[in-house]
């Protein structure tokens, strides 16, 4: 909170800026998100909530440049999106929603976490892989094939991958959808610590409200922000 307070009004501390952004999916007449204007400052921890189909995932993917808006302007860490997406994304951690791989996927947990380093020019080694897995209390999964883990375990592994990148911004899409209550509390603690101690900006999309002291709660419905 202190960091956020100190930075209020400082233009350079706006890590995400959206101006009148609308995105629609190919072949759909109705836009999935409409006229969204939003500013998120460095060090904020924000919840984006709303019913299914409200446009939460679409908003996240649009900010990351995975979806291209048909109107509006987006800046992520000062980079123009989606034009400079590849540069901006190197500073981001992303946990996609409903991520689950079937049994037989030819990758073990160690590989999956190591991939987080592939785009940031850092070398993966046992040390930093284990460190990331330790954070989510999943060290024992190190050599397990990813497809042979439960949905909750897979979600933890992907969280470890996102954390391993030491991102400036974390985008988490329904990070609690598959994990149990205990793990949910653990993850909430990790995120709060990360936010407080390392000033990481965190955006959490969730239709349930996790036990975190959010700086801001953005409510969405029908592709629009109804309160923020």
């Amino acid at each position: 909170m202190v960091a956020q307070f100190a930075s209020r009004g400082n233009l350079r501390n706006r890590v995400i800026e959206l101006e009148n952004v609308s995105t629609s999916y190919a072949g759909e007449l109705k836009p999935a998100i409409k006229n969204i204007s939003l500013e998120i400052r460095k060090g904020e921890i924000v919840l984006i909530t709303g019913p299914n189909g409200a446009g939460k995932t679409t908003l996240l993917e649009t900010i990351l440049g995975l979806l291209k808006p048909y109107e509006g302007k987006i800046k992520l860490l000062g980079y123009e999106m989606p034009k400079d997406a590849i540069k901006a994304r190197k500073y981001c951690g992303y946990l996609p929603q409903d991520f689950i791989k079937p049994a037989g996927e030819p990758f073990i947990v160690k590989d999956v976490v190591a991939m987080g380093f592939a785009s940031i020019g850092k070398n993966a080694n046992n040390g930093n892989i284990l460190e990331a897995l330790k954070k989510v209390k999943a060290v024992e999964l190190l050599n397990k094939p990813i497809g042979r883990l439960s949905a909750g375990q897979q979600q933890k592994v992907l969280m470890a991958r996102a954390l391993a990148r030491q991102p400036k911004i974390l985008f988490l899409d329904e990070p609690f959808s598959s994990v149990d209550k205990e793990a949910r509390h653990e993850i909430c603690d990790i995120l709060e610590n990360l936010n407080r101690n390392e000033n990481v900006t965190i955006l959490i999309v969730s239709h349930i409200t996790p036990k975190i002291e959010f700086d801001r709660i953005i409510k969405m419905k029908n592709g629009m922000v109804i309160s923020c």
């Binding site: 990351l64 990758f107 991939m115 592939a118 940031i120």
Partner: peptide, 16 residues
């Protein structure tokens, strides 16, 4: 490897 695992996630992480 990242691409072969999941190309959308690879893209989101800044791999070209």
């Amino acid at each position: 490897k990242s691409l072969l695992f999941d190309s959308k996630l690879a893209e989101a992480e800044g791999i070209n």
